[in-house]
Design a protein around this nucleic acid. Sequence first.
DNA 1: AAGACGAAAGTGGTTGA
DNA 2: TCAACAACTTTCGTCTT
Length: 306
Amino acid sequence: MAQFVKKCPECGGINLFLNKEKGEIICKDCGLVIEDRMVDFGQEWREFDSDGAEKRRRTGAPMTYTQYDQGLGTEVGQKSDLYGMDVRDRNKFFRLRKWQYRISTAIERNLKLALAELKRASSFLKLPKSVEEEAARIYTLAVQRGLVRGRSMESVVAGALYAACRRHEVPRTLDELSEASGIEKKEIGRTYRFVTRELGITILPSNPSDYIARFASSLTLSAETQSKSVEILEKAQKAELTSGRGPTGIAAAALYVSALLHGEKRTQREVADVAGVTEVTIRNRYKELLEELNLDKDIKKIKKKK
DNA sequence: AAGACGAAAGTGGTTGA
DNA sequence: TCAACAACTTTCGTCTT
């Protein structure tokens, strides 16, 4: 087992926080990310039905879903099986094998293309390998269940990626997925819902604080501002301000407020852009935050200083 | 002139009859 | 299957810095 850091090398703090899903160790005092490419503790597969469970129990060589045939091929029978068959059986045998060949090559061709696309989009979004694997797995299942029919391959890839991100708590917005894949937001959302429903994948509603780190860094905000906004989010959650609302809007508003409080003001427009929401939404959330959390005084203090 | 604010109307999705 | 509904967006006019 690897040796874990016990103290933050930056500030010497001991409030280290290990996020297994994201593979990060974060110092809660100064916000420093100490290690961000750890081993993935997440499961590699899920059991969707009892057959699947039997077949997938972990024995033998590890499979990878980012390779189109998972390193395994399927073929119906072998020539030596012909021994002892009569003519009718032989014909049937060849027919079956031909079909199997056609079907499997069709699927494989599709997968090969799709997984290339998936890799491209995934690296564009700088997603961790574990998420990419998960997305590939979801896509493979979708193809096997014939869920791609009637939908474009790209949109299913995007949907699978979106789902994988959510499951690993490294959410990307639909806008980002849309930019990476060139598929419309609506379409991604639709296929995402369809695929997850058909495959019985359960996805927890995403947590606003999952977005904070990413938004904060694209706005180049300090670590204090960042942890302050997480604090605000926690309070907001207790005040039941978060349920039913879009997580990105809430995250954006929390960031906006804490940036104000730390004198690192960003315009609503700037925050809105990186969060993929409108200024209006930020304003609404912002107003609610001020009301519920008595931040009015703090804001006024800041204004007076000027 | 740019940013913040808020009202009003429109969109797409969820829910419950 | 349809209508009501909540959240969010778009647009636009007004106020503040």
